[in-house]
């Protein structure tokens, strides 16, 4: 494991933990898309089903379990927590996730490395992760609300994307037979959708800044 990969995993983990702590501290999930968080949970569950079939390392097992449980923890807060659930923008967060889930699943049936149960689910999770931020992007475009989406979370999520791309480049040049077109293509698309999200986040941030200026 190279330093880019490890740093990428850590920033990804930190982004989720930061979000969770922020929800806990402020007792609010305003501005956060439950649909995006649920898509991430689907991504983690379908990708990490291989926990039952293949063992790679103790590091991988622990990280996978943390990713799955923390994503469900965020969903629990948004859906079930007495106070936090009341701050959820239910009426605004209406993106039809089926429009993402179904095409991604179809695509994973057609384009994969191997037509098997775990392999198709793994491929599905890669495709879905690339577009999972879209409901969040739409919610942000509608509300300009950046309450719970702190700049820390946004920064860490972006750093995770950048570091993983560096990791692929590093592995491509240092390992024999390392090439994974599915991951690279969807990873690049994912980074592009993230950049779009980032752009709107900055826009909303500046708009909020203007609103809160003393007159």
């Amino acid at each position: 494991m190279n330093i880019f990969r490890f740093a990428g995993d850590m920033t990804h983990l930190c982004s989720i933990i930061v979000l969770l702590l922020k929800i806990q501290a402020t007792k609010s999930c305003a501005g956060l898309s439950l649909r995006t968080q649920e898509l991430y949970a689907i991504v983690f569950v379908s990708r990490y089903l291989d926990l039952f079939f293949t063992f790679i390392s103790m590091y991988n097992v622990i990280m996978k379990l943390i990713f799955i449980s923390s994503s469900f923890c965020i969903i629990w807060y948004m859906r079930c927590h007495r106070i936090v659930a009341q701050t959820y923008d239910r009426e605004q967060d209406t993106f039809r996730v089926a429009f993402l889930v179904v095409p991604c699943f179809m695509l994973s049936l057609m384009i994969n490395h191997e037509f098997s149960f775990t392999e198709v689910l793994w491929t599905f999770s890669i495709y879905l992760e690339a577009v999972a931020i879209l409901p969040q992007l739409v919610l942000l475009q509608r509300t300009f609300n950046i309450d719970t989406l702190t700049s820390n979370y946004i920064f860490l999520l972006g750093a995770y994307r950048a570091l993983y791309m560096l990791n692929w480049i590093y592995r491509y040049f240092t390992e024999r037979d390392y090439s994974q077109w599915i991951v690279w293509t969807s990873g690049t698309l994912q980074t592009a959708t993230y950049c779009d999200f980032f752009y709107y986040y900055i826009l909303s941030w500046r708009k909020n800044e203007r609103l809160s200026l003393p007159s």
């Binding site: 995993d9 990708r47 291989d50 790679i56 996978k64 191997e114 793994w122 994974q180």
Partner: peptide, 10 residues
Amino acid sequence: GPAASSHDEL
């Protein structure tokens, strides 16, 4: 290929 079947990244 070997990279396809062993998904060692998270």
